[in-house]
């Protein structure tokens, strides 16, 4: 294929991921979040716009599109404006390596089956924190800066257990490619073989996407809204898109690595993927609305003193077992 066609294909793919994530993850995710939180707290939630409040987020997005952009007088204009692009972009890049199902003839539905898929995922999700730090510093606001700094320490700490969980699975499958990892789960899912790595991945993913009980970054009772306190209108919406996009990407990766990806009986593969994805999204929301928030020292201590040793031990034991089985 000539290079300009490749380029066009990449641009079309980007638009497809962007609109897909914007609609499926951010819009529907926000609605789901509000509905589930209402259900957990014995409320009704959004109910008036559209049937059962289904169009509420569309109305909110239209409202945000019309709002004025406000840039604080002492903010750093370049960094303030570019931070908005970094966070959703890093979240969208995650979707390149996620296999959503199979097309006709068993060909996996994936943008690129990179042979470093899992590593690529870890690398792109690590870029989110750069955008958060830029937003926190560029706003020139103490709450935003505190949120950004908390985010940096939190995400650097939780990337390590997450990476160790990823390596464990990659070692079992003998590949970093997400498609090969799903193929390796033909007999049973890795959640059966690696329950510890699954739990570690879910905890680290919750911390990486800054959700309760790890939402120190935007703890509303302490920091207003953390790093995006000063953002208005569509810029605010783009941060929301980045957060929900990242959460859906984490859930999709957990499905791919531990829950057998698109595999399942009777139903079509894409449907299986979506069912598993939303089951995990429900777990994330359930945790968010039922648990209190950690303190920052508890949060960091938990990562360094509990998660990392457990993940390391799990990695060593898995490596040992893999060696014995191979002999």
């Amino acid at each position: 294929m000539p290079w300009y066609l490749e380029l066009l294909r990449a641009i079309a793919g980007t638009i497809l991921i962007f609109s897909g994530v914007a609609v499926v993850a951010a819009m529907f995710g926000v609605l789901l979040e509000r509905k589930i939180s209402a259900w957990i707290q014995s409320r009704l939630g959004p109910k008036h716009v559209g049937p059962q409040g289904l169009l509420q987020t569309i109305a909110d997005t239209l409202k945000l599109l019309q709002k004025e952009h406000i840039v604080p007088r002492n903010a750093d204009p370049t960094i303030f404006a570019s931070a908005v692009l970094v966070v959703p972009l890093a979240a969208l890049l995650d979707y390149v390596v996620i296999p959503f199902g199979t097309a006709g003839g068993g060909r996996p539905l994936i943008f690129r089956d990179l042979n470093i898929g899992v590593l690529f995922f870890a690398a792109t999700s690590a870029l989110v924190v750069v955008g958060i730090l830029m937003a926190g510093w560029g706003s020139n606001n103490k709450y935003a800066l505190l949120g950004g700094l908390r985010s940096a320490s939190q995400m650097v700490s939780y990337e390590i257990p997450m990476g160790l969980a990823l390596i464990t699975v990659a070692m079992l499958a003998g590949s970093l490619s997400t498609v090969k990892i799903v193929d390796a789960q033909a007999h049973w899912w890795y959640v059966v073989e690696q329950p510890v790595a699954f739990v570690i991945f879910l905890i680290a993913a919750t911390a990486e996407v800054n959700r309760v009980p790890f939402d120190l970054v935007e703890a509303e009772s302490e920091l207003v809204a953390g790093y995006f306190s000063e953002y208005t209108g569509m810029r605010f919406a783009l941060f929301q898109l980045g957060e929900y996009g990242e959460m859906f990407a984490m859930a999709a990766m957990a499905v791919t690595l531990f829950l057998g990806g698109w595999r399942g009986p009777v139903l079509p593969p894409v449907l299986w993927f979506v069912i598993k994805l939303y089951a995990l999204i429900f777990v994330f929301m359930w945790v968010r609305w039922t648990l209190p928030r950690f303190r920052i020292d508890q949060l960091l201590g938990f990562s360094w003193k509990v998660l990392i040793p457990v993940a390391l031990a799990n990695l060593v034991v898995t490596a040992y077992v893999v060696m014995i089985v191979q002999r």
Binding site: A123, T124, A126, L127, V129, V130, M155, E159
Partner: peptide, 11 residues
């Protein structure tokens, strides 16, 4: 990306 862009710059 993981080490330099993601971790070193953040630090």
């Amino acid at each position: 990306v993981l080490i330099y862009a993601g971790a070193i710059t953040v630090l």
